[in-house]
């Protein structure tokens, strides 16, 4: 098992390298002087421009520049944002918890609900419930996630005033203890629902197909024949087998989920990485953009490794393949 984990980690190394290479390529391929891309802003002193030019070795041959850049990234120096007057890494780490909180909650809620609904729908294929939920899932799959957020905000926050319109906490709420938890939870309801719809649709559709396939297998017939209660057949015997590919897909889609999270955060002004991305785009703050790309890519790579390891723990056959 340890060997397998080590091998998966080793396979991830070239990917990290590619990510850094993409950033490096963008710095040089973008129109204009690379030094201004690295600075992210034009209005600064000539001395500072010179310092950055020397720091990144921009007067050196290209491969030296790449080595310098690689060294910087590997020593966790993601550059400096002139706009925020702060190192990029610090900026990103500040906003990481908010994003993880929103994403983790939404991911858990939508995965659990999607798998349960998929399992239930697969029990009676082609019934009215099945058709109805399939159409609803397809609808969830076909709308821009941030538009759904906008509509929810207008209906539930503005007109019905059930939930706050934006942010993560209100100023007047208690700043610690249970009151604060409840306050954050209230702020999370709409973003979590918005963000869950797309992912729920995906998980639901996949679980339904996999469950249908599994329920047609012989060992299910055997289980039924020996008198196992139907609920146990569906949720223990079948679901355990059907859910494996679903886990893989959840892991593989982590990148798209981050995208959904970023768009949702922007709608609800959630103080996470999405908000940072939005501000950085507006200011064309290139160091922050590249830093975010690096960190988000690392998150996706790590998520993929974790998914594979979980899969291997549940289904040891893959280790020996």
């Amino acid at each position: 098992m340890l060997f397998y984990v080590a091998r998966r980690l080793a396979q991830a190394v070239p990917l990290v390298f590619v990510i850094i290479l993409i950033n490096f390529f963008l710095i040089h391929a973008a129109p204009g002087d690379p030094v201004f891309v690295l600075l992210g802003s034009m209005d600064t002193t000539p001395e500072f421009v010179e310092r950055v030019r020397r720091e990144f070795g921009l007067d050196q041959p290209l491969w030296v520049q790449f080595a310098t850049y690689l060294g910087k990234i590997l020593s966790l120096d993601l550059g400096y944002s002139l706009r925020f007057q702060e190192p990029v890494l610090g900026l990103i780490l500040d906003r990481l918890p908010a994003t993880l909180l929103l994403m983790g909650t939404a991911l858990t809620v939508s995965s659990v609900v999607g798998i349960l609904l998929g399992a239930i729908a697969a029990r009676r294929p082609y019934s009215v419930t099945d058709h109805a939920s399939t159409i609803v899932a397809l609808a969830g799959y076909s709308m821009p996630v941030f538009w759904l957020g906008q509509i929810m905000l207008i209906v539930f926050a503005l007109h019905l005033a059930w939930f706050p319109t934006q942010g993560m906490y209100s100023l007047r709420a208690p700043s610690e203890g249970w009151g604060r938890v409840m306050d954050i939870a209230r702020h999370m309801v709409l973003p979590v629902i918005t963000y869950s719809v797309y992912h729920l649709a995906l998980v639901y559709r996949l679980t339904r197909v996999k469950m249908q396939e599994t329920l047609a297998l012989d060992f299910i017939t055997t289980a039924r024949a020996k008198g196992v209660p139907e609920g146990r057949v569906v949720f223990v015997h079948a679901l355990r087998n059907a859910v494996l590919p679903v886990v893989t897909v959840i892991g593989l889609n982590f990148g798209f989920m981050l995208a959904g999270s970023v768009l949702t955060e922007t709608v609800f002004a959630w103080p996470g990485m999405g908000r940072l991305l939005f501000d950085a785009i507006g200011a064309r703050d290139y160091p922050v953009l590249m830093g975010l790309f690096t960190v988000l890519s690392l998150m996706v790579i790590i998520a993929n490794v974790i998914t594979d390891v979980i899969y291997a723990m549940v289904d040891p056959r893959v280790i020996y393949r």
Binding site: L15, L26, A29, A30, G255, A259, Y286, F293, S297, V300
Partner: peptide, 20 residues
């Protein structure tokens, strides 16, 4: 495979932000 693993939406963001 490499293209499938890197978060492509953000790569798109970078490309459009850098090249206009």
């Amino acid at each position: 495979e490499i293209f499938q693993v890197i978060p492509r939406f953000f790569l798109g963001v970078l490309l459009v932000a850098f090249f206009g």
